[in-house]
Nucleic acid binder design. Structure first.
Lengths: 194, 194
DNA sequence: ACCTGAACACCGTTCAAGT
DNA sequence: ACCTGAACACCGTTCAAGT
């Protein structure tokens, strides 16, 4: 809306600026505001200008999802107690997801993220598991269970849950306690000694 | 496309026929084909005609999601062994979800279903838990953990998973085994004796 | 290389008719 | 009550320019 440039005039756009605007738009006006056209309006360019910096909307959202994971506090995989470290990492992930409720359905739909931040967290988890002799297929299984559980639970927490059967929506603290409890059961099952 | 009716002429539409067409469209051409306009085209009416039978697209999809749950084989809550019954119910749900891969992201985004079929399954789960003295808040917690876990795992299985860290996509059988294993851990943690 | 103009092929939904 | 016509306010994306 209101672009004052003639064709050929540069707007000073860059990939980083586009991603930054996407994060701001998300934080200020929610996921539905993050359209290519809405983003373009905020950057004061025409919608198609964005395609010089991102391949498409999917790629843009993928980058935003990975960026957010940088907020997760990962323990030092060399020194942390494995069970406590995994617990802390998943708890921090849970909190970060709750801080970005609009994104949770997207993490679900795409089953996580695939960028460098996600890779980094995965590496920390694998390193912690390796220190209690859990490697290979067994480690990948553990990763999968923990990630699915965490994202799934976050999805449950971000809004009034479905409540199959008769029930009232539990408060956030109760859900957080639920999350911690189930997480301990899973870690015990996986075989990480407490 | 090609409606041959003058205003006032009826098309013989009914809510049930609209839902049926939505299910067919989903099965034949996938989720993205299930738009109000695409649905109208298949029923040979104009898009707005649908609004005489469903409130909006969200309500329509909600009904489709609940309908699918009718395929889940629920055990008899009076006679089934509680742990085995819960295990069987969740496994059947997992299979039904895998049979409708396009819907899984929607179950995730809406955190389940809320219709009569979902209510029915929830009632069976609560009855099984009650038989091992798990009731009230503790039962709701168990329900939540089991449902989140099952939908989350199904989401993971429906497509090449994200694979945080270095890994190859596991085959369906391996994932199914993963699902069963994690489910047993959760049931043990919930306190349902095996 | 980076942007605009214009267009294509879609969406969900609403409002005012007609019978 | 159930449908059409027409429109509103959007989408993501592509193609052909301009500098």
């Amino acid at each position: 809306v209101g672009q004052q440039r003639a064709p050929g005039q540069r707007a000073g756009l860059t990939r980083a600026r586009v991603l930054e605007a996407a994060r701001e738009l998300l934080a200020e006006r929610g996921l539905e505001a993050v359209s290519m056209r809405g983003l373009a309006a905020r950057l004061e360019v025409t919608p198609n200008a964005l395609y010089s910096h991102v391949a498409n909307k999917t790629a843009l959202i993928d980058d935003v999802l990975d960026d957010v994971l940088a907020e997760v506090r990962a323990p030092d995989p060399e020194t942390a107690e494995p069970a406590a470290g995994l617990h802390a990492l998943m708890s921090s992930t849970y909190e970060v997801l709750l801080a970005h409720p609009d994104l949770v359905p997207l993490y679900l739909a795409r089953r996580g993220a695939r960028g460098p931040e996600a890779q980094q967290l995965g590496a920390v988890m694998l390193a912690l598991l390796a220190r209690v002799e859990i490697t290979g297929a067994r480690a990948r299984e553990a990763l999968r269970v923990l990630i699915v559980y965490t994202i799934g639970f976050a999805a449950f927490a971000v809004r009034p849950p479905l409540e199959i059967g008769p029930a009232v929506g539990p408060p956030g603290e109760e859900l957080a306690a639920n999350f911690e409890r189930g997480l301990r059961w899973l870690l015990a099952g996986i075989g990480v000694p407490d």
